[in-house]
């Protein structure tokens, strides 16, 4: 299927990416080409095939419900763009 300009804008919004207006035609063309490549999958009948999510079909390991991490707040916040009194700062969300 081929995409429209509005599709690219919607996808960029879903992915929370700002893209420049002048870059939209380029993305439109490249994303359409990639989707065209991907559509080769449709030539194959997969009606009775089980989807494969993991190479060895393993499921997630369970572990005991006990604390394993230590508190490293200071180390982690040292690399944050903006923190105050142990909180991450972002623009005001609630007026």
């Amino acid at each position: 299927m081929s995409l429209q300009k509005e599709d690219v804008e919607k996808i960029a919004h879903l992915a929370q990416l700002s893209i420049n207006e002048e870059d939209i035609p380029g993305y439109l063309e490249e994303l359409s080409k990639i989707l065209h490549l991907v559509e080769q999958m449709n030539a194959v009948n997969t009606d009775n095939v089980e989807p494969m999510a993991h190479p060895q079909d393993s499921s997630q390991r369970l572990r005991e419900d006990k604390e394993t991490e230590i508190n490293q707040r200071d180390a982690f916040q040292k690399i944050a763009p903006q923190v105050e009194r142990g909180f991450y700062l972002v623009p005001r969300v609630i007026e």
Binding site: D7, I11, L14, A15, L31, L35
Partner: peptide, 9 residues
């Protein structure tokens, strides 16, 4: 960005 968008789609 291209790959994130293909994935999101």
């Amino acid at each position: 960005k291209r790959r994130i968008m293909i994935g999101a789609y």
